[in-house]
């Protein structure tokens, strides 16, 4: 596909065309993952525009003639390469387009690529230093949210975009739900749990949050395999027997049950008087 053809397609349709195979796979996967995938890839209208400036008003007046006309925002398509999933780009991507360098010169292809750094970022909940590839915009966003954790937890999946950020978010959500972080400093833990109370989502959704389609597919396959595998009866019987042994009290004296045949038998010794 040449540079021209890609951008001429409608913006929403282009993504859907690329993801036809993925959409088919997702329709089979469990509902919590479908919910996540719709938040991640299926909400183009909610995305904050990074590489172009939208106009808020529907009508625009021409400054020279004073004529009023309807205005339509046509978004500029942005490409997200695979390397995006290994870092925090803050919603930035690669723009593919043409440049006209003179009035009588034919347009020339050009790629607008963001600038990257390798820096260290600190997460308060995990209490870890992470060295990751980052753009200046991502660092500014972290400063605005005053910390990596609140940036990840407060921004939705359609703005985070990269799988690394989404995986980190899943880890943070799990650690808040289980309360297994900062075990030595319980005061700080309770403060942080209260701080991020509103960002939480139910546990079933968290278990399927932040997976790529291929990873989710693999996870679902493993789950089905575990469920469909036949279990031998001996395991359950053995388990029941062990539990009965555990519940039994050995200190109590066993109650003597005398069969009716013994009672009728006249040759047996009579029971000794106490």
């Amino acid at each position: 596909m040449s540079a021209g053809v890609r951008s001429l397609l409608p913006y929403n349709r282009l993504r859907r065309l690329k993801n036809t195979h993925n959409v088919w796979i997702v329709s089979v996967l469990p509902v919590p993952y479908q919910k996540f995938y719709r938040e991640w890839m299926g909400s183009e209208d909610k995305e904050t525009p990074v590489h172009w400036k939208p106009v808020d008003s529907e009508w625009v007046r021409n400054p020279e003639t004073g004529e009023v006309k309807r205005f339509q925002n046509v978004p500029i398509p942005v490409l997200y390469p695979d390397q995006m999933h290994e870092g925090l780009w803050g919603g930035e991507g690669v723009i593919e387009g043409l440049v006209k360098k003179g009035k009588y010169r034919c347009p020339v292809p050009r790629f607008w690529v963001p600038n990257f750094y390798k820096t260290v970022v600190y997460s308060e909940i995990l209490d870890k230093y992470l060295s990751i590839v980052v753009t200046e915009r991502a660092l500014e966003l972290i400063d605005q949210h005053s910390g990596l954790d609140s940036y990840l937890l407060n921004t939705p999946a359609y703005d985070l975009k990269s799988l690394l950020a989404l995986k980190l978010k899943r880890k943070l959500l799990f650690s808040i739900l289980d309360k297994d972080f900062l075990v030595n400093n319980l005061e700080k833990q309770t403060n942080l749990v209260e701080k991020y109370k509103d960002c939480l989502i139910p546990r079933d959704d968290v278990e399927w949050y932040g997976y790529s389609v291929q990873e989710a597919q693999l996870k679902y396959r493993m789950l089905l395999k575990e469920q469909s595998q036949p279990v031998a009866l001996k395991h359950e019987i053995r388990r029941k027997y062990y539990q009965s042994l555990i519940n039994k009290d050995f200190d109590e004296p066993p109650t003597e049950s005398v069969s009716w045949v013994k009672k009728m038998n006249p040759f047996t010794k009579p029971a000794q008087a106490p």
Partner: peptide, 8 residues
């Protein structure tokens, strides 16, 4: 869109 709409 046409090809000219890709010139930025």
């Amino acid at each position: 869109l046409r090809r000219r709409h890709q010139v930025f």
